[in-house]
């Protein structure tokens, strides 16, 4: 299985390093021709959503990626990636993929002094370390979106079909559990559908431990 990491700006190398520890190959998406390489899921890393969103469009990658996400490409998104996916952004007029029916607030904890680290209860996994860097959070979700984690009342992790979106950065804490969850529950099914393999066969996965 190969993950494509959007490498326009931000902390994409950290995602690649974490995926490599799980035995997953990665490619970097920096310009349109990189989309010709085959890959099974997409990673939208942290960074500045304004920069990434602008470059996605100006480097002519936006439409193709949106089409693929719409047709089931699994997506793992952190921080800026969540903003790129959100249908609505409360405090910004810009919109990007709009494939995740949630409303987010950018820089929701304020400036860098509001950045923080904590242990978070994650549905189905338990306590995980969570690093929030000038992070957004989700202020409302449509009913079909599953909330996976909250800090107090604020929603900081959701799943929607083939999309896993987080306010925080498991790649900074080098915690592979959320990726394992994503790969087993979301990326695998999509990859099975694409390759036509049976679910029995696909159950045998190196990261199922």
């Amino acid at each position: 299985m190969t993950g494509a990491v959007l490498a326009l700006q931000g902390a994409f190398a950290e995602h690649e390093a974490l995926l490599h520890t799980l035995g997953i190959k990665t490619i970097e998406l920096r310009e349109k021709k990189d989309l010709e390489e085959p890959f099974d899921f997409l990673v939208l890393p942290g960074g500045e959503s304004t920069v990434q969103g602008k470059l996605l469009k100006e480097l002519d990658m936006f439409d193709e990626l949106k089409k693929r996400i719409d047709s089931g490409l699994p997506v793992f998104a952190t921080c800026a990636g969540l903003i790129l996916l959100a249908e609505n952004i409360e405090n910004d007029d810009k919109r990007y993929f709009q494939v995740l029916p949630v409303t987010v607030r950018r820089n929701a904890y304020g400036r860098q002094l509001g950045s923080h680290h904590m242990l978070l209860d994650f549905k189905g996994i338990g306590q995980i370390p969570a690093t929030f860097i000038r992070a957004p959070y989700i202020t409302s979700v449509s009913p079909e979106v599953e909330v996976l984690a909250k800090e107090d009342e604020e929603i900081v992790a959701v799943q929607y079909h083939h999309i896993l979106a987080l306010s925080f950065h498991p790649e900074l804490d080098m915690d592979g559990r959320l990726y394992r969850y994503f790969l087993e529950h979301m990326a695998k099914n999509a990859s099975d559908m694409a390759s036509g393999t049976t679910s029995d066969k696909a159950n045998v996965l190196p990261f199922s431990a």
């Binding site: 490498a7 326009l8 700006q9 931000g10 902390a11 994409f12 190398a13 950290e14 942290g46 960074g47 500045e48 921080c79 800026a80 860098q112 950045s115 923080h116 680290h117 690093t131 860097i133 000038r134 950065h169 900074l172």
Partner: peptide, 11 residues
Amino acid sequence: LNKDLAKMLKG
């Protein structure tokens, strides 16, 4: 956290 913000600025 402060080193992490710099990581977000990379590239």
